[in-house]
């Protein structure tokens, strides 16, 4: 026995794991009866259904041929995720003025094509200015320009 369809196998395994997760987390939700469905009824039914699809997919991966998964772009994945997560950390603490450039720089590392030249810098500055003016000043999104780290250091009007 060998895996003939890699994608089917891994997708199936993911389904099974996710289904197990949903079922385990939902183990204490009350089932209720059909005429009075409890909070657990629908999730449990769906959880088992997902698991069944996963098993079918795994079985199929041994029986039919499929394309290999190919390379996973771990580096790209890591840099883009790091950028977004950093934005989440910095947006309320350092503020948009720092969170945005950090996000752009980190995610740029995801692409081999990125260039770090004057043109790129000007675009970054333009984008930052645009976002501050349009989102914070224009649309009034309650997003600090300078975050909590600057409390008491700069006048509050600079932070908004």
């Amino acid at each position: 026995m060998r895996i003939r369809a890699e994608k089917d196998f891994w997708a199936g395994l993911l389904y099974v794991l996710l289904s197990a997760g949903f079922l385990w987390l939902g183990r204490d939700y009350k089932m209720g009866v059909a005429s009075r469905m409890g909070p657990g009824y629908f999730p449990i039914v769906l959880g088992w259904t997902l698991g069944a699809f996963g098993v079918v997919s795994i079985v199929r991966s041994f029986l039919t041929d499929g394309a290999p998964i190919g390379k996973i772009a771990w580096k790209t994945l890591a840099w883009v995720s790091a950028g977004v997560l950093a934005f989440g950390v910095l947006i309320t603490t350092a503020g948009l003025l720092f969170a945005l450039p950090v996000l752009v720089l980190l995610s740029s590392l995801a692409s081999a094509e990125s260039r770090y030249d004057l043109k790129g810098l000007l675009i970054l500055l333009g984008l930052t200015l645009f976002c501050v003016l349009v989102f914070v000043k224009g649309l009034g999104v309650p997003m600090p320009v300078l975050g909590s780290w600057f409390d008491g250091i700069v006048p509050p009007t600079w932070q908004r």
Partner: peptide
């Protein structure tokens, strides 16, 4: 290469502004 960081920025700001919480960004 110029486009995708801008898209990510708009996504991040958009998601944050939903409920003003960094949790949504994560």
């Amino acid at each position: 290469r110029y486009l995708f960081p801008i898209i990510i920025v708009f996504c991040a700001i958009g998601v944050f502004s939903l409920n003003n919480t960094y949790f949504d960004v994560y």
